[in-house]
Amino acid sequence: MKPVLIFLIGSAGSGKSTIGKKLASAHHFCYLDKDVLCNTFTGKLLEAKGYSPHARDGNVYYRDTVMPLEYETLLNVANDNLQLGRSVILDAPFVGYFSESDYIQHLIVKYQWVAVIPVVLQVNVREDVLRQRLQNRGLERDAWKLDHWEAFVQALEANVCMWENIEVISVDNSSDEFDLDRLTALLPMSTMPSSSPKETTGMGIE
C-alpha cells in the first residue's frame, strides 16, 4: 500500500489537532504536531534573540529564520516515516507557504516521494466559535491573536492555500457533531489500513 501524507491545515483553535489525533488513532498513522516537535528549540532560539519564547505572530526573526527550521525538521521526520511505508499526518499551519503554488511538487522532488499520496485536509470554523475556543484554552501564544483580532481574522481570510496538483478536502468543525467514518470515506481509501470499530467524535463535517 502507498503511504498517505495528510497536510492538516487550519487556524489555531480550529480543532485540527483533535481531528488529526482521532484519525491517526483510528488508522494507525504517524501523527506529527509541529508545535510539539519544535516548541522547545523554537522558544530557546527566540529567547536567545531577546524575544518572548511565545513571540511568533508578527515576529520577523521567527518568520524568516526560525520557522523554516521548524518546517524542515517536521518534514524530515515525516519523510523517515514515509520511507518506512507509514502514512503521516502533519499538523501545522503551513500558512507561510500557501502562496507557493509548486510547494507540494517541490517537496515531492526533494524527498523523492514517488510512491506517496499527498492530500490536504483543511479544517474550517466560524469566527465566533474560533474566538471562543482561543479564549477558553488560554494559551500565551494566542494572546496576540486575541489582542489584534480584526488583523488576525483578515490574515486568515487573505491566506488562501494556492498549492497545485494536490487534492484538498475541507471540513467544517464549527458544530459539536463529527463523523470520523464520513471523513475517512473522503480520504484515499485504497491506501488506508483497516480502521478500528466505528467511532464518532464531537465535531461536524462540511
Rank of each mutant, 00 (worst) to 15 (best):
H54R: 05
G20N: 01
P197H: 02
K44M: 11
V60H: 11
S52V: 13
V119E: 09
K16G: 00
M1C: 09
Y71M: 04
S87T: 03
S194W: 10
G15M: 04
F41Y: 07
A185W: 09
E47A: 14
S170D: 15
L84Y: 12
K16N: 04
Y71G: 02
S174F: 10
T200Q: 08
V160G: 00
M192A: 12
R63Q: 13
S14A: 14
R133G: 01
L75T: 00
S174L: 06
V168L: 15
F29D: 03
S101W: 04
V125T: 13
N159L: 05
C161F: 14
Y51E: 07
L46T: 03
V109Q: 15
K198P: 03
A155E: 13
T73P: 02
S52L: 04
D172T: 04
R63S: 08
A92W: 00
A24T: 11
S25W: 13
T201M: 10
F7N: 01
S175N: 10
V119Q: 05
H28E: 14
L23Y: 08
E206Y: 15
I117T: 15
G204P: 02
D172A: 09
A151G: 11
R182N: 09
G58T: 12
G50M: 08
Q112Y: 04
I89C: 11
S175F: 05
N39G: 05
D33N: 15
S25N: 12
L107T: 01
Q105C: 04
V60I: 13
S11P: 12
C38R: 03
V114C: 05
Q154S: 14
F152R: 08
S174T: 15
D128C: 07
V168Q: 15
D147R: 06
G85S: 09
G15S: 06
A48H: 10
R63I: 05
E100K: 13
R126H: 09
Y97M: 03
H54P: 02
L187R: 07
G138W: 01
S11E: 14
W113D: 01
G43F: 11
H28C: 12
E199Y: 08
L37A: 12
A158V: 02
R131D: 03
M189D: 09
V77N: 00
A185N: 07
M203S: 09
C161I: 15
P197V: 09
G138F: 04
L75K: 01
D176G: 07
Q83K: 15
P53G: 01
Q122D: 08
A158F: 08
V171T: 08
V171R: 04
N81C: 10
R182D: 09
P93F: 12
S175V: 10
A12M: 11
F98N: 01
Y111K: 05
I6C: 02
L134V: 07
M189C: 13
G20D: 02
S14M: 03
D80A: 15
P118N: 01
L107R: 15
R131I: 03
V119H: 03
D35K: 10
L74Y: 00
L45Y: 06
V153M: 05
K198H: 12
P68A: 05
V4C: 08
E157D: 13
N59H: 06
V123E: 00
D128P: 07
P93N: 05
G20T: 03
E199R: 11
L134M: 14
R63K: 11
F29W: 11
D172W: 07
L84N: 12
S175R: 09
